[in-house]
Design a protein around this nucleic acid. Structure first.
Length: 596
DNA sequence: AGCTGGATTGGG
DNA sequence: AGAACCCAATCCAGCT
């Protein structure tokens, strides 16, 4: 079918009794609320307003789908979860958006943006939504309900139009508009992905989860009961302590019990306990392991977070200062490897599981333009490549040296090995060392695409001034130095971790487009639990910093895997152009995410 | 009763 | 073993 033109759309896009046309030349569509309706403004590429309309809240998803079928547009709105969850529930997928809240946060803090930019003035756009997205996708009936009541963000059309103009001005007047355009587009695409991930869900087999729990803990106890094997371990611990009433769940009480039994640990952490020889150690470590599994990902978690064979966590794009995602509820970013066997494709479907090997050092090589490190990274294993340069003797040394360089280690094996990397990869090491120095001096550093770290707090500055005063005490100086070094380690890591997060956003943004373009599998006994938008073709199902899981009909698995690889290559080009850096993937196609 | 912070352990 | 960066979730203790 030929791609519809915008004129075709203008003639065709009518909803209900009122015809709502999209003018020619439209590039941006800004959304806001107008009572129960959705109000829209059409803008062209030069920000010239082409017209305003309102669309009924009960029909705007259909209208948006028709607009989306035409020439490329970017939807502009205050907060992606508030709008896009509704659209997906109604079966409308969008390709591009501009999330005003997320982009505001980036531009407000970016060192690339002029200090006197209008959007630096504090407004409601600095609000952080405190309400989670709706737990269940809203029904069409609910679309008219005020979607923004809980966010604290401006919700009306003129607010959005004005903020959008401020953001465009800030980008255009910045020291590098190209990078900030990329970053705001990538961040916004990530916002779409996060909503899609939640809507589609991660295919989860509750029976497999239950089998794992039963194997480790014993049969599921009655509500409030203690699983058999946990009870068992607890009994053995109390016997070894000679204290039948010892409380194992309270850290201070457990510590006292251990002391009474002659185990003079300073904490009850696993690594410290493991160094002692005493009959209580083995069962106590076992108890802690089981207790952890039960409380973090036991049957209660399963009941709360898995429904209809899907784990639907809440992702929070931009939730970490570095630009990484955070999660809120469900613990999506902390799923223990132990439970991966519960991640299981639907019948007739499979999983494409891919992660980037050594993402951060590769990003460092590219952003610093360090050819030697890029050469060492060529192929599969960057650490083996470092050994081949002769900088260090073993792969293990290469790894802790590189991690030490990116995290700012100064002591131990890691601190000792970093100087060797400095000789072999001077440009890469200079980049992180410069970032550390800038941070120690109170400065601000930025990622490759222009996300900047927060400025130091007033307390930090005060400590530094105090230490340089004539009457400063030794304690003042020690504290100021420690805080300066702490901040140096933070900024050192910020530039690398943040740029890696940008690479991952670009990877996913490109990937979701490729997956959406794959042929549907209309006759498949497809995965309807992922919702209408995702039930006939491969879709993203999970994301974790440097790893994605795609859920795909079996006959599209190879195509999806190719899309994952091509998207990685595309992300590398988008960020680093022709610089010769590889981002090799560990990729496998399987029915279950269980490690082999 | 509800909040906060510490300790611990899971993830990268 | 940890170190050294970014986190979240849980439980308990201690506070208001």
């Amino acid at each position: 079918m030929p791609r519809p033109t915008s004129r075709w759309i203008a003639e065709r896009a009518s909803v209900g009794t009122s015809t709502v046309r999209r003018p020619d030349r439209t590039t941006w569509i800004v959304l806001g609320r107008a009572g129960a309706d959705v109000a829209v403004v059409f803008l062209d590429a030069e920000d010239v307003e082409l017209g305003r309309r309102t669309v009924g809240a009960d029909s705007w998803a259909t209208w948006a789908a028709e607009i989306e079928a035409g020439e490329a547009v970017r939807w502009v709105w205050n907060d992606t979860p508030r709008w896009y969850a509704e659209l997906l529930a109604a079966g409308t997928r969008l390709a591009r958006c501009h999330d005003l809240r997320l982009c505001h946060a980036i531009l407000r803090d970016s060192a690339l943006v002029r200090a006197d930019a209008d959007l630096r003035v504090h407004t409601d756009w600095d609000a952080t939504p405190h309400a989670d997205p709706p737990a269940a996708a809203p029904t069409l009936f609910e679309l008219g309900a005020a979607p923004d009541a809980a966010t604290g963000l401006p919700e009306f059309l003129d607010d959005a139009v004005r903020e959008f103009a401020r953001q465009r001005t800030a980008i255009d007047g910045s020291t590098d508009p190209g990078r900030l355009r990329l970053l705001t587009a990538a961040e916004s695409a990530g916002a779409l992905v996060a909503v899609e991930l939640r809507a589609a869900g991660l295919p989860w087999d509750p029976q497999a989860h239950d089998r794992i729990l039963r194997g480790v803990l014993g049969p599921r106890p009655a509500a409030g009961g203690t699983p058999m094997k946990l009870e068992d371990a607890g009994r053995r611990v109390r016997a070894a302590l000679g204290d039948p009433s010892a409380n194992l769940d309270s850290q201070p009480k457990l510590l006292r019990s251990l002391h009474r039994a002659g185990v003079l640990v300073e904490s009850t952490s696993r690594w410290e306990l493991a160094q002692y020889r005493h009959p209580v150690i083995e069962p106590l470590l076992e108890y802690k392991k089981l207790s952890r599994l039960l409380s973090a990902n036991g049957w209660a978690w399963l009941d709360e977070w898995v429904h209809d064979g899907r784990f639907r966590p809440v992702y929070v794009p931009g939730g970490v200062v570095t630009g990484r995602w955070a999660s809120s509820g469900g613990g999506a970013l902390q799923l223990p490897r132990q439970l991966r066997g519960a991640v299981h494709a639907d019948p007739g479907w499979c999983l494409v599981i891919a992660d980037v090997a050594q993402l951060e050092p590769r990003v460092l090589a590219a952003m610093s333009g360090d050819r030697a490190l890029a050469d060492a990274a060529r192929g599969k294993d960057l650490y083996a490549g470092i050994v081949d340069t002769g900088a260090v003797a073993t792969r293990a040394e290469a790894k802790i040296a590189m991690l030490g360089a990116m995290y700012g280690a100064t002591t131990g094996d890691s601190g000792r090995l970093v100087p060797r990397l400095r000789r072999t990869f001077p440009r890469a090491m200079a980049l992180v060392d410069d970032a550390a120095r800038e941070g120690e001096n109170g400065g601000v550093v930025s990622t490759w695409l222009g996300r900047s770290c927060p400025a130091p707090s007033a307390g930090w500055h005060a400590a530094q001034s105090l230490a340089s005063a004539v009457e400063a005490s030794g304690g003042d100086e020690t504290r100021a130095r420690r805080w300066a070094r702490d901040r140096g380690r933070f900024t050192r890591n910020f530039v690398v971790q943040g740029t890696a997060a940008e690479w991952a956003l670009a990877w996913m943004a490109d990937l979701r487009g490729r997956l959406a373009a794959l042929d549907a599998v209309p006759d498949s006994d497809a995965a309807p639990r992922s919702g209408a938008v995702f039930s006939t073709r491969p879709h993203l199902a999970f994301f974790l910093h440097d790893e994605v899981v795609v859920h795909a009909p079996r006959e599209r698995a190879e195509a999806a895997a190719l899309a994952v690889r091509e998207a990685a290559a595309s992300a590398a080009r988008l960020l680093f152009g022709d610089f010769p850096i590889d981002f090799p993937l560990d990729l496998r196609i399987a029915e279950s995410a269980q490690d082999d």
